[in-house]
Computed example of a mutant assay.
Amino acid sequence: MAELGVSGVGLGRADSGGGAGRAGADPLLPQEENGVDGRAIRVGTRRSQLARIQTDSVVTMLRELYPDLHFEIVAMSTTGDKILDTALSKIGEKSLFTKELENALERNEVDLVVHSLKDLPTSLPPDFTIGAVCKRENPLDAVVFHPKNCGKTLSLLPEKSVIGTSSLRRAAQLKKKFPHLEFRDIRGNLNTRLKKLDEKEDFSAIILAAAGLKRMGWENRIGQLLSPEDCLYAVGQGALAVEVRAKDQEILNMEGGCSVPVAVNTLLKDGQLYLTGAVYSLDGSDSLKETMQTGVSYPHQNEDGPNDDVQHVGITAKNVPGQAQEAAENLGVELASLLLSKGAKHILSVARQLNDAR
Score class of each variant (00 low, 15 high):
L11G: 08
G12A: 01
R13N: 09
A14T: 10
S16D: 10
G19L: 02
G19E: 01
R22M: 13
A23S: 13
G24D: 15
A25T: 10
D26F: 09
D26P: 14
P30A: 13
V36S: 00
I41H: 00
R42Q: 05
S48R: 10
L50F: 12
L50Q: 09
R52Y: 11
S57M: 03
L65W: 07
D68N: 12
D68Y: 04
L69G: 02
F71Q: 05
I73M: 13
I73P: 06
V74H: 11
S77D: 15
T78H: 02
T78C: 02
G80W: 07
I83N: 07
L84K: 13
T86E: 13
T86W: 01
A87P: 08
I91F: 04
G92T: 08
E93P: 02
S95H: 13
F97H: 14
K99H: 11
K99S: 12
E100F: 07
E102F: 15
R107I: 05
E109W: 06
V113A: 08
H115L: 04
S116P: 13
L117F: 12
L120E: 06
T122F: 10
T129P: 07
I130R: 04
G131Y: 02
A132Y: 01
K135R: 15
E137D: 15
E137T: 05
N138S: 12
P139L: 08
A142I: 07
F145C: 03
H146Q: 08
C150R: 15
C150K: 14
L154G: 05
L154D: 10
S155W: 00
P158T: 07
K160W: 01
I163V: 10
R170C: 12
R170W: 00
L174N: 00
K175I: 07
R184Q: 10
R184T: 00
I186C: 06
N189F: 11
R193N: 05
D202W: 09
F203R: 05
A205D: 02
L208G: 00
L208R: 01
G212E: 07
L213A: 05
R215I: 03
G217K: 04
W218P: 02
E219P: 02
N220A: 14
R221F: 06
I222C: 01
L226H: 03
L226E: 02
L226I: 02
P228M: 01
E229D: 15
C231D: 12
Y233L: 00
Y233T: 10
A234Y: 12
Q237E: 15
E243H: 05
K247G: 04
M254G: 04
G257L: 14
T266M: 10
L268P: 11
K269G: 01
K269W: 04
L273Q: 01
G277T: 06
A278D: 02
V279S: 05
S281G: 15
D283N: 13
G284A: 11
T291S: 11
T291W: 03
S297I: 00
Y298Q: 06
Q301I: 05
E303G: 15
D304I: 07
D309L: 14
A317F: 00
V320W: 13
P321F: 07
G322R: 05
Q323D: 15
E329T: 11
N330H: 12
G332K: 10
V333E: 09
L340K: 14
K342D: 02
G343W: 05
S349Y: 11
Q353L: 11
A357Y: 00
A357C: 06
